[in-house]
Design a protein around this nucleic acid. Structure first.
Lengths: 208, 208
DNA sequence: GCCGAGGGTGAGCGAGCGCTTAGAGTGCCC
DNA sequence: GGGCACTCTAAGCGCTCGCTCACCCTCGGC
């Protein structure tokens, strides 16, 4: 029914580029396990078991458990940044672009909330070099959102007294969706995205 | 509801009721360690060391490492709930009450961001019974905020198409402050509180 | 001076951790 | 068929974890 690239919700699975197959299965298993129990509470035996392999098999494809987290974090951040940027760079008024950015970014964090949780909340488990690389990706998120808001202010479409602070708040609001979103809850990722796009337009005082 | 002891920053220290002294020192040490490295990455040797004691001393005052986390979570949630409720129950228009609730709740999450991080992000490390107790406290947060928003809608002061969704978003925004707030950053807890109070009033469409 | 109680320690137990190693199974090229 | 490269496993190493235990120190009551 669905291809390897698509879930039922229509969100792209970010692991298409990972090969060989065994390495991808280990990565997917690690995402599940890290999201459920946290990086430090997850054992390499658990990851290998979920992937249907022996504990030693993990070390054929990854040097350490931390390398798994690093790979997940980098790919996850890049995919989320892609989603955000393609909305930020689209045609339309600043309000259109901001609404679309929030809608798609939130949809990603809700639909891919397992990946997002790992990516957002396990950063401190990475070593200094890997962490620095991820932090740089995050700053690009910030720049993308701030750019739209600045455009809106310059065009006179937004009323934002504190652009930097509002940027932080908007991103924080979107990212935290990964923490509370529940697949069995009453809302679909699309619905949360629509709600949040409206709330954010209010936050920036967009002229209706 | 305690009229608590105050630090220089004006935020109440939540641990006044914990005694004897050694038990309180261990609790404070555990909060620092859990906030820095996470529950699972923190060792009992580290906690005891920060409190200036031997590893075995921890077990005179607490049955397990998890009991420490449970105590921290319960006290932390109760203090945050106190802060939120005293604003929610105050006199004034719904807009005044909502602004004050957000301002003080955000101030708490920024000023006490070590406690708040532990309380918000280590919930899954608790066993089922302890977790259920904490989840019940969280629902009271939700009820307090939703109450103010409903009052505002009933009074015609707010324009909120989706009360439940907006409540979740407001609380999420406030709580996530604990994740990104940095003591060495450019903003004080008071400033973030003021910014967020304004943003939330916009989110609910408060008549200015 | 002696006692009991309670807070504290040094040493260490059993368990489970991340990771390694020796070797087996499998497919491919000659 | 034989050699090689690659993938994977069974077994287990060295280590650190949460936690325990036997014992010690301090102090108030008599």
């Amino acid at each position: 029914m669905s291809t390897a690239e698509e879930t039922a919700g229509g969100e792209p699975q970010p692991w298409g580029e990972v090969s060989p197959d065994a390495a991808r299965r280990l990565l997917v298993a690690a995402v599940e396990a890290f999201a459920e129990r946290g990086y430090h509470a997850t054992t390499t035996r658990d990851i290998a078991g979920r992937a249907g392999m022996s504990p030693a098999a993990l070390y054929i494809h990854y040097k350490t458990k931390e390398e798994l987290l690093h790979r997940i974090s980098r790919i996850g951040h890049e995919k989320a940044l892609d989603v955000l940027r393609s909305a930020a760079d689209s045609e339309g008024t600043p309000a259109d672009r901001l609404a679309e950015a929030v809608r798609s970014f939130v949809r990603w964090h809700a639909g891919q909330h397992t990946v997002a949780r790992v990516v957002q909340y396990e950063l401190d488990a990475l070593g200094p070099d890997a962490r620095a690389e991820i932090v740089a990706l995050r700053r690009q998120n910030d720049a993308a959102v701030r750019g739209i808001i600045e455009d809106g202010v310059a065009a006179g479409d937004f009323d934002v007294p504190d652009v930097k602070g509002t940027t932080v708040a908007v991103l924080s609001l979107c990212i935290d969706v990964a923490r509370w979103f529940n697949v069995n809850g009453p809302r679909t990722p699309d619905e949360v995205g629509a709600l949040y796009a409206d709330l954010v337009l209010r936050m920036v005082g967009a002229t209706q």
